[in-house]
């Protein structure tokens, strides 16, 4: 499905701010996988998503999606196959355009000069009604008037209206209040399951990292340091994860000491 082979990315090369954000990272994602990704700040989780979705090109390595080499494919072309949600609910939709116009653009139906027809409108209305947030009655309102939770749910709908091969969720509920976060997460689960979308989700919540999906990976310093699925994952507790976390951090300290001595 998604085959990442030894990708590396260095920011600000040859300067004092040089930062190796991805370090020969490889990952093999199977069709239908729902992988949760955890790691400390700066571990390279979002950078990994940026690399997959094409916000920048990696310095080396290859990325294959469903057998297609997307390593050097431009961002907007990849977007046909990859949906993405950010932590910031404002990032996924155009605030001065209506709910309907946002959805219509995302659905990508028709030629350049086609307009939203009544039948399109009804289809969009039925789809948005599935979110159960009352948005079906606000189709003509600018998206900027919606709450963060509503906007994130709309973005989720926009990202999956043509089911992508891969969905990247970058802490997409972290900026929402608890009840909205719960609701958006529930919608996410049902859409991903129903449309059988392969999914990667970054989270800071260890509990949901273990509860959601079928596989969990932990990142540190641009590398995957722990990758768990199946029986082993079922037995794992949050405490175990934290231990793994500290183990990795401790090793890092040792490495630093070695460097200094």
């Amino acid at each position: 499905m998604l085959k990442i082979n030894n990708i590396s990315k260095t920011f600000n090369p040859h300067t004092v701010n040089e930062h190796l954000a991805l370090d020969k990272l490889s990952l093999d994602v199977k069709d239908g996988d729902f992988i949760t990704i955890i790691g400390a700040n700066g571990a390279g989780k979002s950078t990994l998503f940026n690399a997959i979705s094409g916000s920048f090109f990696t310095d080396e390595g290859t990325i294959l999606l469903d057998g297609i080499d997307i390593t050097l494919m431009s961002e907007h072309k990849r977007a046909k196959m990859i949906g993405r949600l950010f932590q910031d609910p404002m990032r996924g939709s155009a605030p001065n355009m209506s709910v309907e116009e946002n959805l219509a653009l995302a659905s990508g139906k028709g030629g350049w000069l086609s307009r939203i027809s009544n039948s399109d409108r009804n289809i969009l209305k039925d789809k948005i009604a599935l979110l159960d947030m009352g948005l079906e009655n606000r189709l003509n309102q600018p998206v900027g008037l919606l709450s963060g939770g509503q906007r994130q749910a709309l973005t989720l709908m926009m990202a999956t209206i043509n089911p992508p091969k891969l969905l990247l969720l970058d802490e997409h509920t972290a900026a929402l209040d608890p009840s909205a976060a719960e609701k958006v997460l529930a919608i996410t689960k049902s859409i991903v399951e129903e449309k059988r979308i392969t999914c990667l989700m970054i989270t800071h919540n260890m509990q949901s990292a273990l509860e959601l999906g079928n596989r969990t990976i932990m990142m540190n310093r641009g590398k995957i340091i722990y990758d768990v699925e199946g029986e082993e994952r079922k037995r794992l507790t949050v405490r175990d994860l934290l231990e793994k976390f500290h183990e990795a951090a401790g090793k890092e300290l040792d490495n630093d000491r070695m460097l200094l001595s």
Partner: peptide, 23 residues
């Protein structure tokens, strides 16, 4: 109001959203 027109408006409003709509 056409798809191209909507895309142009969205480009001024949120270019990221345009890219993620494969435009």
């Amino acid at each position: 109001k056409t798809r191209l027109g909507l895309a142009i408006r969205a480009t001024g409003d949120n270019p990221d959203m345009v890219k993620s709509s494969s435009i």
